[in-house]
Amino acid sequence: MIEVTGLVKRFGSTTAVAGVSFTARDGAVTGFIGPNGAGKSTVLKAVSGLLAPDEGTATIDGHRLGATALPPDLRGVFLSAEWIPAHQTARSFLTYLCQVQGLPASRVDEVLRSVGLLADANRKIKGYSLGMRQRVGIGAAVMTQPRNLVLDEPINGLDPEGIRWIRDVIRGVADRGGAVLLSSHHMSELSMVADHVVMIDRGRIVHEGAVTDGRVQGSDAAGPRRVYVESPDLGLAARLLRAADLEVRSLDRGAIVTGAGPEDVGRVVFSGGGSLSHLAERALSIEDVYFRRSLEDEEAVR
């Protein structure tokens, strides 16, 4: 489990992260989203032990990263392909990581084979494409077969096969009971693997919710509830709903009603003598949550 509690980090007079708390649970993939400059990388670095927070804690399975000797397989971390030394070969880079983590030398070839870089292992990394560097970095992160994973934008530059591979790796760690904290701007990918989503903006958590079938549940914090309805007499139903101060917008064979849950929408239509053939709450996608928050922020600025 990755637990962040009351995390505060300041850089000079700028507060990058202001009291962030959330939990990436065991057995689940937690998507960590937010616009550029929101504080995602700062939180991920604190979780990875790369910077010390001014206040609060970040723990992995109860361990605070720092001076204490920890089992190497406690967590795997991939933060950026830029961190991989360009002047080394993939083999020398992974060999070093194997040795400092007490892994057998045979693990190097296993990792190189699994990320599809065995044939290029002795080339300098500076000659690699972004996707190849990503694969080296992700291979390095999973080489200890870690219990928990922290990944920042892992699919950048990956081809479809690589994306499927990283998706399987992420899902596999969670299925084995570990926690995965995954930051990405690829909302569709997150929808496919995330069980839970946490959104950060301007250094604060602005939304959290479970993800089911790519839809974020408990989206109240992200905006008003929305319900999809179909009716044999859609015009009457729409008039009744508008009369109840609800926003109605046509969609396909039905309409989206904004501002009430399905129980209220059904009551308004039936009590007015209308009827419904379909009534379902429309949960937000991760992308909806992201853009809704961004829109609200823009409106707040205006």
């Binding site: 000797a69 920890l70 089992p71 190497p72 397989d73 406690l74 983590q101 007490g102 892994l103 296993e110 084979r113 699994s114 990320v115 599809g116 694969r135 999973v142 200890t144 077969q145 219990r147 081809d159 096969e161 690589g162 591979w165 399987d168 790796v169 899902r171 596999g172 760690v173 299925d175 084995r176």
Partner: peptide, 21 residues
Amino acid sequence: MTVRANTRAGGVPARATSRPP
């Protein structure tokens, strides 16, 4: 890129026992 036989289906390596630092 190909995930080979040293990993479980789906490219997930089998769990290792926790090794000391």
